[in-house]
């Protein structure tokens, strides 16, 4: 068969396939005349066949290019995946996220150790030698912290220049979720980035806690952080764990190539990051609107905090198991 015969014989099919594809991409027409899926699929398969033939017979490039283009356009339409939707989100919360966390239990344990180790160490060190705080943050920041949690302060928490819960809500979202993402992405450097961010944030929190405890502001400080800590600290550890998974895949890819191992690790651990975003959104809301409420009696605050910790840990431990 000569190229000319080939073209004249199949041109009509290619035109039809192309017109179906343009119809699909311009949504307006779809309601009036739906695209016949069966016809589209069969035209696509025939175009694939003809492309293979045209290549094998070395037909002129304009024919091969045309076929290449319509098959790849049709391929995109036919094999596209839709992952959106509420059902998907519900499944993510009810099953996928807690399961992914449990599947990465070893990484979570390492991340928790790397985060809590410096936290406790620095906490004790600073408690017994308060001047050590100056090796972590400068004097001005220390004074600010002290001011924030002092009995005279109107509202507890971090710097409150804008002076409103809403403003702080926005600040926490931008700042905290950014830290979570950093802990995750740092995993690409053989896990070192994740380890660094985990240890650094742990050390900072520990130092501040140790210092404020030593200054006798412990009840102000702990009643502020303990509730949203259930979500925030867990989220930081989990995103670090997701980063460690990626780093581990790069160091020890096993029987896969490093690229394949990295792609697989990213696909599985990104599920944890979805959950981390959710946890940090909750943490931001709690921190801005609940933790800062000073008029709340302390026993109530501690009860709610205990409830939150039990809820978060119980959710990660039990939720989504096969019954």
């Amino acid at each position: 068969m000569t190229p000319l015969q080939f073209e004249t014989q199949y041109q009509a099919e290619w035109d039809e396939l192309q017109s179906l594809l343009t119809k699909l991409s311009t949504r307006a027409n779809q309601k009036n005349s739906p695209v016949p899926g069966e016809r589209l699929a069969s035209l696509y398969r025939r175009a694939c066949e003809q492309l293979a033939l045209a290549r094998a017979r070395a037909y002129p490039s304009h024919i091969v290019e045309r076929l290449n283009q319509i098959t790849s356009d049709a391929h995109q339409v036919i094999y596209q995946q839709r992952e959106f939707g509420l059902g998907r989100l519900r499944r993510m919360i009810a099953v996928d996220f807690p399961r992914a966390v449990r599947a990465h239990a070893a990484y979570v344990a390492v991340a928790a150790a790397v985060f809590l180790g410096p936290l406790v160490t620095l906490g004790l060190l600073v408690y017994f030698n308060p001047e050590l705080i100056l090796s972590m943050v400068d004097a001005e920041t220390v004074a600010q912290f002290e001011e924030m949690y002092s009995d005279s302060a109107e509202a507890m928490g971090r710097a409150r220049a804008a002076g409103s819960d809403w403003a702080m809500f926005g600040y926490y979202i931008r700042h905290n979720i950014g830290i979570g993402f950093q802990c995750f992405a740092g995993g690409l450097f053989a896990g070192v980035g994740s380890l660094f961010y985990l240890a650094f944030n742990g050390a900072l929190i520990g130092a501040v806690a140790g210092y404020l405890t030593e200054r006798g502001l412990s009840s102000n400080f702990y009643s502020f952080v303990v509730t949203h800590g259930a979500f925030e600290l867990t989220a930081v550890v989990l995103s670090g764990a997701a980063g460690l998974r990626i780093g581990h895949a790069l160091i020890a890819p096993g029987r896969r190539t490093r690229t394949q191992a990295l792609a697989l690790a990213a696909r599985e651990s990104i599920v944890i990051v979805y959950g981390v975003v959710g946890l940090l959104l909750i943490a931001a809301a709690v921190e801005a609107f609940w933790s800062s409420a000073r008029w709340m009696p302390l026993p109530l605050k501690y009860c709610v905090a205990a409830g939150c910790w039990i809820m978060v840990l119980g959710y990660l431990w039990r939720q989504g198991r096969e019954s």
Binding site: H75, Q76, Q80, Q81, E83, F84, A185, L188, A266, V273
Partner: peptide
């Protein structure tokens, strides 16, 4: 942006590549 098998990008892949941007810009 497409998947490397030529398909349209999936939400998971898009989120992954844009979160890992943090590592790329270092």
């Amino acid at each position: 942006v497409v998947m490397d098998n030529g398909l349209p990008i999936t939400p998971a892949a898009s989120i992954t590549r844009n979160l890992l941007r943090t590592a790329d810009l270092l």
